[in-house]
């Protein structure tokens, strides 16, 4: 059998085989292996919970695939709340005819990513829909984790705080865009899709006073910073030259007329930290491969309240705007 058939979702023998051979094989742990209707677990203290559905097209991209993304994304959402990823649920919706080998690859990436987060899948579900009723494969994951660093909030940023990014920006967005719809651009660029908990853990252990932290996914850096500026009633001021952007991302932006600040990141976060901790935070992150280009990129003041502002190299200022809906190449 090379492809997923409708009967794989029917609950019968084929379903059992699929679960055993693919899912249990990869995700095996004591709780999951019991295959109960619901999985019991212990929780202590304040918890956080998040859910997200993944429909990325293309399913496989350079630097990851939908499976890796489904674990990174959900664990990163927990990490961005100061919560240590713990238990995950996952639901697959698979289009009839999807390749079993491809499914195995996806599941393998998920299990590798779970290990990086020290998290386990304790319950799951699989549905197969007739050809044409879904686009290849969708994955939903829900995660719970214990909050180990409390008090993060997008409304708690104050004047004098510093803005720090964990790595160069825009790689996921740029990469996914060029892989899609008739753009025909070749680039060695990879998605930055990666788990952020290890970095957050480092920062917490280093005693960094984090005010707000967010992975710059849809809408990129500019969406996050605009939201913070509004919710905290401050002016966030970035120095354009300090923002780390890879050369390949710049090239794609030149070709298509994009701004790197609008492109999604899947393994890069931005945070507001206490002024005195900014350099220490950068140093801590640079010691880890996922934070190799970490940098202080700006400050918080009150010049233009509720706005995110970019300072150009010539000392002029402009609004860091929020991207309008779907990104389209600026050709004319």
């Amino acid at each position: 059998m090379k492809e997923i058939l409708l009967e794989h979702g029917g609950g019968g023998e084929s379903t059992g085989k699929l679960i055993n051979d693919i899912f249990l094989e990869a995700f095996s742990n004591e709780t999951l292996n019991k295959l109960e209707d619901a999985s019991p677990f212990f929780a202590d203290g304040k918890m956080a919970m998040t859910t997200d559905s993944y429909t990325v097209n293309p399913v496989f991209f350079s630097g990851g695939n939908i499976g890796k993304l489904s674990i990174c994304g959900t664990c990163n959402d927990l990490a961005m709340m100061g919560a240590k990823p713990g238990y995950i649920s996952c639901g697959f919706i698979i289009e009839e005819g999807f390749g079993i080998d491809e499914l195995k690859t996806i599941v393998k990436s998920m299990s590798e990513e779970l290990k990086k987060n020290n998290a386990v899948i304790i319950t799951g579900d699989t549905k197969v829909v007739p050809r044409g009723n879904a686009d290849k494969i969708y994955i939903n994951t829900t995660g719970v984790g214990e909050i180990v660093y409390d008090g993060l909030s997008s409304s708690g940023i104050g004047e004098g705080d510093m803005i720090v990014v964990s790595n160069s920006i825009g790689e996921h967005g740029a990469h996914i865009f060029v892989m899609r719809e008739g753009i025909n651009i070749k680039s060695d660029l990879k998605s930055d899709c990666r788990s952020l908990w290890p970095l957050v853990d480092l920062l917490i252990k280093a005693g960094i006073r984090i005010k707000a932290i967010r992975d710059a996914t849809r809408g990129g850096l500019s969406a996050v910073l605009n939201e913070w500026a509004r919710q905290s009633n401050v002016c966030i001021k970035l120095k354009e030259e300090l923002i780390p952007v890879k050369r390949e991302v710049k090239g794609i932006c030149e070709l298509l007329g994009f701004e790197p600040y609008h492109l999604a990141c899947e393994g890069t976060f931005v945070m507001a930290v206490d002024r005195e901790d900014a350099d220490k935070a950068v140093e801590a992150m640079r010691s880890h491969e996922y934070g190799s280009n970490a940098a202080v990129i700006g400050t918080v003041d009150s010049e233009f309240i509720s706005k995110a502002v970019l300072e150009t190299g010539i000392g002029t200022k402009r609004i860091l705007d929020i991207p309008a809906g779907v990104l389209l190449p600026r050709i004319c």
Partner: peptide, 9 residues
């Protein structure tokens, strides 16, 4: 052609 690492025909 190459534009800073992005190639296109």
């Amino acid at each position: 052609v190459d534009t800073m690492g992005a190639a296109r025909s």
